[in-house]
């Protein structure tokens, strides 16, 4: 029967495209995350001069440290690109290796960010000091929280690659982790431009 043939064909197609359906869903999730960050950016811009007598961004920010953070994160995107190339080559060890390098670079980023946060807080410039600092810590901290979950995800994937090998399911998950990781990079470019560069000239 014609309908049966059509539906079987459809089913085969559906199975083949299951990965792309999940990836599409993940894209939509990322778009919802764009809204989260947009709101945080909008909030930051609204409060960007609400110093309440406290320090300004220009007085607080130390660009060399932020530059190092940026380098770490951007290079981690490069190394994640190498994860995907190794995946395509089917080289399990190299996938794991580059995942670990990406993890280390991401961890450096988080370490530097925590260092910045702690030193600000210890000098009395914590998020409680002013609306500006609340918005600063929340925006940058939300990005940092995303990166932290990304690090956790990398570890999970290192484990999955080790135990399951480069199966289609694992490869599909690595693709989405790649989307997530590059997305965080792009958000960081916006953070760097708006918060730090903007703060230096505000």
């Amino acid at each position: 029967m014609a309908t049966t043939d059509a539906s079987m064909h459809d089913e085969i197609q559906a199975e083949a495209s299951q990965g792309t359906v999940v990836n599409f869903g993940f894209w939509i999730y990322l778009m919802s995350d764009v809204i989260i960050f947009s709101m945080l950016f909008a909030g930051f811009v609204v409060l960007s001069t609400s110093y309440a007598g406290g320090p300004t961004g220009r007085e607080l920010f130390e660009l060399p440290g932020v530059f190092l953070e940026t380098l770490a994160l951007l290079f981690s995107s490069l190394t994640y690109g190498l994860v995907m190339i190794s995946l395509r080559q089917g080289n399990k060890r190299r996938v794991q290796g580059w995942l670990l390098v990406t993890f280390l670079l991401g961890a450096c980023f988080i370490g530097l960010e925590l260092h910045e946060f702690l030193s600000l807080a210890l000098e009395g410039h914590g998020p409680q000091r002013s609306g500006f600092l609340s918005a600063f810590f929340t925006l940058v901290g939300t990005h940092g929280t995303h990166v932290t979950f990304g690090l956790l995800w990398i570890l999970v994937m290192v484990g999955q690659v080790a135990y399951k090998g480069l199966t289609p399911a694992v490869a599909s998950r690595l693709t989405r982790l790649s989307l997530f990781w590059h997305f965080l990079d792009i958000v960081w470019i916006a953070v760097f431009s708006t918060v730090y560069l903007g703060g230096m000239y505000r």
Partner: peptide, 13 residues
């Protein structure tokens, strides 16, 4: 945590 997004004073809006 005593942030100041929407508070009265301390730069809240």
């Amino acid at each position: 945590f005593d942030f100041h997004f929407f508070t009265g004073g301390m730069g809240g809006n």
